[in-house]
Simulated assay, not measured.
Amino acid sequence: MRRFIAALSVLVVAAIMSAPQAHAASGVLVIDGQAYADPHGCYPGGGFFVTVTNNTDRTAYVYPNKGCWGQHEGWVLPGGHASMNGGSVFIE
Rank of each mutant, 00 (worst) to 15 (best):
A60E: 06
C68D: 05
S26D: 14
A14Q: 12
V13M: 10
G80L: 07
S83H: 08
C68G: 03
V62T: 00
G79R: 09
G70V: 04
P44N: 03
F49M: 04
I91H: 04
A7D: 14
H23C: 03
H40W: 14
S9H: 03
C42F: 03
G45Q: 02
T59C: 00
A37P: 11
G74C: 01
S26N: 15
I5S: 07
H72L: 05
V28N: 08
A6V: 13
L8V: 02
P20N: 02
A25D: 01
N85T: 12
T51R: 10
G46L: 05
P20V: 01
A24Q: 08
T53N: 10
V10D: 05
S26Q: 15
W75Q: 01
C68R: 05
G27M: 10
V89F: 05
D38G: 02
F49R: 11
R3C: 07
L77H: 12
L29I: 06
H72N: 11
A7W: 12
G27I: 09
R58A: 04
I16Y: 13
I5K: 05
G45M: 07
I5R: 10
V10P: 09
Q21K: 14
S26F: 13
D38P: 12
S88E: 09
K66R: 11
V50E: 00
H23M: 05
